[in-house]
Design a protein around this nucleic acid. Structure first.
Lengths: 144, 144
DNA sequence: GATGACCGTCAGGTTCGTTGACTTCCCGAG
DNA sequence: CTCGGGAAGTCAACGAACCTGACGGTCATC
């Protein structure tokens, strides 16, 4: 009975943090923005832009999954795809001006959520949590 | 950049544990059983059965969500719904004989996953993880 | 130059969950 | 005693975040 709770708690905690981030963004005037989208914005290199595959790698998901998020962000004008001059197959995802503004806001929102989490947990437990998750996923990766 | 990783890691860790549980169950001869289903089986009171709403409450989800899982388990003969003698509205979810056998297997599978997790994390970190999650979700609940 | 690997894409699925809108039934207050 | 609020289970529709598989171009190398 104890362990399925762990799995569930992990999911619940994920949802909680994601929801908090969304609220934080809303309060800052960026409504209808989801955590996955904010996360993507933060992963695009501000200067040179970043390829889709690289974004997927950073986020630890498939390129198909990442493409959906890029699509959404592109429609809303936060990001645009430009052909990669060095590679005809590739496209580079870049932030628009609006996207850069959003990026700044996202960093603040993320910091706020992190600070709140850290406060309710205490610094020690917070660090412990991060460490445990790092370890868990790292060793999973190796076995895979 | 640091925090959105936390949220994502929580999700990834959830998927990992759920997948491990499924594999564990498969290896024990119970294929095509998902983590949510196993979790439900473990939450049904072995003697008296449990109402749908109560199951939903225990799992921290809506009764609609819980109903789906009960439906699946009922179709496969692990569980059945009987009218509650004390309340004409309610039905009691009970394990069938096959369901009880599955329950025992689930407990073992869960224990195996837990043991493996504990081993990769170390007892100290494992306990810390659980504690952190408890705290995180508990205080979330209060604010809600 | 053919061959295999790689980039982005399209199409379709899966898992776990949600909100909203009933119907049926319980219960307590007027 | 009825009658109105509320709770139990259900039906339907949807959402978020993923996945696998299959392709058409492009690169890079042999």
């Amino acid at each position: 009975m104890t362990e399925p709770q762990l799995g569930r708690q992990l999911l619940a905690a994920h949802r909680t943090l994601a929801a908090e981030l969304v609220v934080e963004l809303e309060e800052r005037g960026w409504p209808e923005l989801r955590a996955s989208q904010a996360s993507l914005v933060l992963n695009v290199d501000r200067r040179s832009g970043t390829r889709l595959t690289e974004l997927a790698r950073r986020a630890g998901v498939t390129k198909q999954a990442m493409m959906v998020v890029v699509d959404e962000l592109e429609v809303r004008g936060f990001v645009r795809r430009t052909p990669d001059p060095d590679d005809g197959r590739a496209k580079v995802v870049r932030l628009t001006a609006r996207g850069r503004t959003l990026g700044a806001e996202c960093r603040r929102a993320v910091a706020a959520v992190e600070a709140r989490t850290r406060r309710t947990l205490g610094g020690r437990r917070y660090e412990g949590l991060r460490e445990a998750l790092d370890l868990l996923l790292e060793t999973e990766e190796e076995t895979a």
